[in-house]
Amino acid sequence: MKYSLLLIALSACALVANTPKSAQTIGDYDKINSIETQVLDIDTKVTSVETQVSDMDTKVNSVERKLASMESTVSKIKQTKEEPKEEQVLKEDLDIRISVVGQGVAPMNTSSPAQAYALAKRAATADAYRLIAEKVKGVRIDGQDLIKNMMVKRSTIRTSVKAMVRNANVVETTFKEGLCEVEMEIVLSHAQFSY
């Protein structure tokens, strides 16, 4: 397009050169000038289009890269779904580390922020102990639904756990906006269970 317009301009110039000087009028010169300005305009437009095209190219490349990475993650997820996770079994040479995060809140009627923190921490510690007991020993669950005239009147779920937890360690304690979180862990070894 650019070259064709240049050719037209050149041919116009040649025509102007070939015509006798007597035939050249002020109107012809004006036409040539206008064509030249048009050609320059077209040139600038072509360069802007070229830059736009190069920008588009880079965008397309980045999108392609993203697509490739997404495809790889999807394939990884598929693989993990296909392969069932091996259940943790307490082996003689391998310890199991169980980590939990217990949560607790301070009561409403505390005399100071320090007391609130201490009480919330105690509640969070108890929650962490409960979570450890649930993970190690398991939970007993009972459910009961009362249905009257084809409608659920009352739905009750009871869970309970009873265990003895020893050698649990507090890893981290955080207190934010009245909520205390205690990260606790316990290491289970084969020797603890073999009598």
Binding site: R154, I157, T159
Partner: peptide, 16 residues
Amino acid sequence: HKLGLSVEHKEKTTNH
């Protein structure tokens, strides 16, 4: 706590 405590937990959920 380090010595070991016995944990007893009960939870009841009635109509959510």
